[in-house]
Design a protein around this nucleic acid. Structure first.
Lengths: 366, 366
DNA sequence: AATTAGCACTCGGGGATTGAGAGTGCTAAC
DNA sequence: GTTAGCACTCTCAATCCCCGAGTGCTAATT
């Protein structure tokens, strides 16, 4: 879905038609009522008569940009109408200072956990947009491991810690059925570190483990069992993380006056894999908007998805899902601001370096 | 709300009245329709006439145990009616083998994380009960610390790991603005371990930190900053955990045909502190049922809360929230089974010992 | 005294009817 | 190209009406 299949471009429309389409979108998103010719004359085009506007409206309807919910009602924008509005007519809006601060606050946390920043940003976005918001965490399996440690808590309990790019820390608790002593655990930890540092999680192979095994010929059984648990732990933490916020807003979506649809949509929201595969093909640079059935997935009909990438090549996605009737200019501004600052927060400069700027202080890690 | 304020006891009712009340509850929970005299005669009391049943129904209504949604409709149970049913008339039901297995599976996980068991149990409960389910995690700040470690990932990144009773592992990532070397981190880790092992998290005091500080007189500033971050990390992880499952079922609750109520209830579900303070006063041993307005909180009107404790003195709570019209015998059975097995899983035998039985293997951990 | 048959009565839900109001499209004039 | 005027259409809400379910009461029966 690239820019070649744009159905409409603004050259097709007279300035007055553009103004009227804009008026229909703005008025409808504000009032939730079909927009009649009289309202447009009153608020946007006081110098012409309603009959003129009616003629223009009929013409816009002929182009498929607006429609009537029923004969003798006002007009509402179609998906194509919204599309044209978003691509060519929407004006860039500035956020309120308070809103900007709220977004920034979500990103400034003393203890660095990318998860937690993501959760907070997502929560703020959903609040500002009055919509549901989803953050799909990057595939951590694609992150390079910066550091891996096996720590002994007591004879029967170990913790595997994986520290990866993006300041991600994961721990997995490993419970043994047999005691392991400090020296052995330390040796395994060192071996793991030697073998897997600077490797992507998805590149961890059996061979690496076999190499480690061979270094522990004196207690192969014990080490073998530990490694088996470690493999499982690593796999376990490789799944896709989905952070959903603002689910309560869907109760306000006019789409879900019928409970059945709400339930289905609610299910979709917690299915990270599905969301990713729906959204990913439509992503371009900056904020993408996927309207109604443009996604090809019926569960999103009547809805708009605002999405953008963060951490460019690791497929983390931030998204806001709204009813199709929403304040596009506002939500675009919110998303744009958040995406811009999130990228600034975690800017990738080279393959191995990662610059973190935080509250004025700038630190270069590893 | 203890046993002294029981309004009704079964001695007040003739056997036939009891049978009819039971019939009304069972029939209504099954069909969702007000129960008429004819239905009762047909399915429960074929030997008397509908007129007789009508007389009995009128009498039960006089006692406030059942009511009519409107004149000339059948009867439905009142909250008092359900209460009497639950306390005296409900029969202990056995779960299906498949259901028992499902619950047990949720508890058997290779990698021990109590959180995760809780989440899975809660998910299974909500599924079996067709309801929302909430697990309030125990106040981990009341758990004794079995082991505490500070691990160095690289010069600027540390991880604090706290391993506590109940096999809880928590990690907190600590990002430094200055480098710390291996030796120093190791020394702090040892000091933390010496100072805080076998202490409850809530008992961690400034004094302990001051004692540690004094041991590091040569680099007080660095250690001070690290300790400050550690305090924050420990506080951070002390908040109340709420795991909500099966939220999608609330879309099926007849209570929430009006979207407004659904939204409010949805909010309540994610407010762990509120839920705890509503539920806690009503807990007795075993499974407690809080009906309708018995909780004193309007947000639960029309709903039933099934709740039980696990880990007796650490205030972990497992709850199922259903519409008041639900299959009490089934949900009671589900809860009872889950609670019984959860207690068996984590049985506390003495102050410092904790017995974990898991898949036949039994391990005793420090 | 408890039970029962019979019957009039009440009420909610669903479907049809109606009137008001909003907004259109068309035509003819400007 | 624009506008005034007007007939037309359609929704929404209110109203009415009828049907059926289920009751409560009364009088007769056991």
């Amino acid at each position: 879905m690239d820019s070649t299949d744009i159905k409409f471009n603004p050259a097709m429309l007279s300035d007055r038609k553009k103004l009227i389409l804009k008026a229909v979108v703005r008025e409808y998103t504000a009032t939730a009522l079909p927009v009649g010719s009289a309202a447009i004359v009153k608020n946007y085009l006081p110098d012409v008569s309603s009959a003129t506007v009616r003629n223009e409206l009929a013409s816009l309807e002929g182009l498929g940009l607006i429609c009537q919910p029923h004969t003798s009602a006002g007009r509402i924008p179609t998906a194509d109408g919204y599309r044209l509005f978003i691509d060519f007519l929407a004006e860039k809006r500035r956020l309120e200072a308070a809103e900007m601060i709220e977004i920034q606050n979500a990103m400034q946390q003393p203890i660095t956990r990318f998860d937690s920043i993501l959760r907070d940003v997502s929560a703020v976005l959903s609040e500002l947009a009055g919509s549901a918001s989803v953050a799909l965490s990057p595939r951590i399996s694609r992150f390079r491991i910066k550091s891996i440690r096996l720590v002994r808590l007591d004879s029967f309990n170990l913790v595997l810690i994986v520290f990866s790019e993006g300041d991600n820390v994961k721990h997995s608790h490993i419970k043994l059925e047999f005691p392991a002593d400090e020296a052995l655990v330390g040796a395994i930890s060192t071996a793991l570190s030697r073998e897997f540092t600077n490797i992507r999680m998805e590149e961890i192979s059996e061979e690496g483990f076999i190499r480690i095994m061979s270094a522990f010929r004196d207690s192969p059984e014990l080490v073998g069992k530990i490694l088996k648990l470690i493999i499982r732990a690593a796999r376990d933490s490789a799944d896709i993380g989905v952070t959903v916020s603002g689910t309560e807003h869907i109760f306000d979506f006019p789409n879900f006056l019928n409970i059945a649809g709400a339930k289905e949509f609610y299910r979709l929201l917690s299915d990270g894999a599905a969301l990713r595969s729906i959204i990913a093909p439509h992503l371009k640079s900056g904020v993408s908007v996927i309207l109604d059935s443009e996604s090809g997935d019926g569960r999103l009909s009547g809805l708009s998805v605002f999405a953008c990438r963060y951490l460019a090549d690791n497929s983390g996605i931030l998204a806001i899902i709204s009813p199709m009737r929403c304040d596009y200019e506002k939500i675009l501004a919110v998303m744009d601001y958040a995406a811009r600052h999130l990228s600034r927060l975690v800017g990738r400069d080279s393959g191995k370096q990662m610059i973190i700027r935080r509250g004025g202080v700038m630190t270069t890690i590893l």
